[in-house]
Simulated scan of single mutants.
Amino acid sequence: MKGIFLARLTSFFRSPGTFLLFTGMSIVFTLILGGVGGYDKITVPVSGDESLQTEFIGEALEESDVYNFKWQEVEDLKETIRRGNAEAGVILKENGYEMIVGIDSSNVQMIEQTVADIYVNKIQEENISELLRTENEEEREELLMAYQEAKENPVFGITNRTFHSSDAFIFDRSLHSIFGFTLFFVIYTICYTVLPIFTQKGNGVWDRMILSPLKKSEMYIGNLIYSFFEGYLQILVIFFVFRYLVGFDFNGELPGILLIMAVYSFAIVSLAIFITSVVKNIQQFNAALPILSVSMAMIGGAFWPIEIVQSEFLLTLSKINPLTYGMEALNGLVLYNQPIQELLKPISILILMGVIFMGVGIHLMERRHI
């Protein structure tokens, strides 16, 4: 068993082309389609006196979590809007502002509301400061105490809540792309590492190896451990690239993600054994694998959220798809902040699928006369 694993490992170092191809495709597709590593804020050009940049208004604009307010000259701002590089721009003044709209969209109203709120806060601060500058020392102290008490104990409290109905779901394009393309492309990597079992048995290599002290079970285990190793190595590379090079933190759930991916890799190794036990030759394998993997990705929610699928037939098919439960467990952990204990159902189903596919696949492979 150890010798088989080391032999396969040596072969991997000599020709890692397939591994590098699917690993690279996972990363590139995610970066292009998922927008990972991109700048999420909407850029809004603004113009005004230099003094405004360092005063209350400028500081408030920089603190915006939604918009990236970029200071420009008035003519440059107008040119930016004219070319369609921004939906709207703002010309700031001491006591007001002017909106220049290029594309009338919902963002324009939100931008205007953001700027208007800043001016309202500025006026309130100025009015309070004016009151506190009264010449009556006793009155100023009373106003100051009242102001501080109002800040510490506001009359009205505002609480933001997000409600999700039973039909609602959370969608993060970047996370979905990372999870979806990783689960999709690792199918190819693992299946092509299992294929040598099929070819070696067909060429009589295993028959000659059985004459040695090596047991057939050890030959299976050695090959399957290697298949798991290469597939899981691809997953590790992808997630470490996005975590430590791109800077995607996965909401601090990377250890849990890797645990789920280990279970998913086991299920795909078992599925690969089942596929090789059903096909009759390499040509059938090469034809069946793309059809099966793409179908699994489409039905299982790798390319788009499974929640938007309306077909009952497709939803039923997704119940026998390992990729469905991989996506469910990953989304539950990262997007819905569910602990691992609450994800035992999809994880257990993946383990059960792995055991069934492995058992049936090896049984059919041994029964078939090659």
Results as ranks from 00 to 15, higher is better:
Met1Ser: 13
Lys2Thr: 13
Lys2Val: 15
Gly3Val: 12
Phe5Trp: 07
Ala7Glu: 15
Leu9Ala: 09
Thr10Leu: 04
Phe12Ser: 03
Phe13Glu: 01
Pro16Glu: 13
Gly24Thr: 06
Ile32Leu: 06
Leu33Phe: 12
Gly35Ser: 03
Val36Gly: 07
Val36Asp: 08
Gly37Glu: 13
Tyr39Ile: 05
Asp40Cys: 02
Thr43His: 04
Val44Asn: 01
Val44Thr: 08
Ser47Pro: 01
Glu50Cys: 00
Glu50Tyr: 00
Ser51Thr: 00
Leu52Asp: 04
Glu55Asn: 01
Ile57Phe: 00
Ala60Trp: 05
Ala60Cys: 06
Leu61Thr: 00
Val66Leu: 08
Val66Met: 11
Val74Met: 11
Glu75Gly: 10
Lys78Arg: 14
Arg83Leu: 05
Asn95Met: 03
Ser106Asn: 04
Met110Lys: 13
Thr114Met: 00
Ile118Lys: 00
Val120Met: 01
Ile123Glu: 13
Ile123His: 00
Glu126Met: 09
Leu131Phe: 08
Glu135His: 11
Glu138Leu: 15
Glu142Ala: 08
Leu144Met: 10
Met145Glu: 15
Tyr147Ala: 12
Ala150Ser: 15
Phe156Ala: 15
Gly157Cys: 02
Ile158Thr: 14
Thr159Pro: 00
Ser174Tyr: 02
His176Glu: 03
His176Thr: 08
Gly180Lys: 07
Phe185Pro: 01
Val186Phe: 05
Thr189Gly: 11
Leu195Thr: 10
Gln200Gly: 15
Lys201Glu: 10
Gly202His: 09
Trp206Gln: 12
Pro213Cys: 10
Lys215Gln: 05
Glu218Arg: 07
Glu218Trp: 03
Tyr220Trp: 15
Tyr220Ile: 12
Ile221Val: 09
Tyr226Pro: 02
Phe229Pro: 06
Phe229Thr: 15
Glu230Lys: 15
Gly231Phe: 11
Leu233His: 05
Leu233Trp: 08
Gln234Ala: 09
Arg243Thr: 13
Arg243Tyr: 06
Phe250Lys: 14
Glu253His: 12
Glu253Trp: 00
Leu254Phe: 15
Ile257Tyr: 03
Leu259His: 02
Ala262Asp: 06
Tyr264Phe: 05
Ser265His: 01
Ala267Asp: 09
Leu271Trp: 06
Ser277Glu: 00
Val278Ala: 09
Ile282Trp: 03
Gln284Ala: 10
Asn286Gly: 08
Asn286Cys: 02
Ala287Met: 11
Ala288Ile: 12
Ile291Trp: 04
Val294Cys: 09
Ser295Arg: 01
Gly300Pro: 10
Gly300Gln: 12
Gly301Phe: 01
Gly301Asp: 14
Ile306Ala: 10
Ser311Gln: 07
Ser311Gly: 11
Leu315Val: 09
Leu317Trp: 03
Asn321Val: 13
Thr324Phe: 07
Tyr325Trp: 14
Gly326Pro: 02
Glu328Trp: 03
Ala329Ile: 02
Leu330Asn: 10
Asn331Cys: 07
Gly332Gln: 07
Gly332Pro: 06
Gly332Lys: 09
Leu333Arg: 09
Val334Gln: 02
Tyr336Arg: 14
Asn337Phe: 08
Gln338Asn: 03
Pro339Gly: 14
Pro339Asn: 13
Ile340Lys: 06
Lys345Leu: 03
Pro346Asn: 08
Ser348Ala: 11
Ile351Pro: 01
Ile351Gly: 04
Leu352Asn: 03
Gly354Asn: 05
Val355Met: 11
Val355His: 13
Gly359Glu: 04
Gly359Cys: 06
Gly359Ser: 11
Val360Asn: 02
Gly361Trp: 02
Met365Glu: 08
Glu366Trp: 01
Arg368Tyr: 07
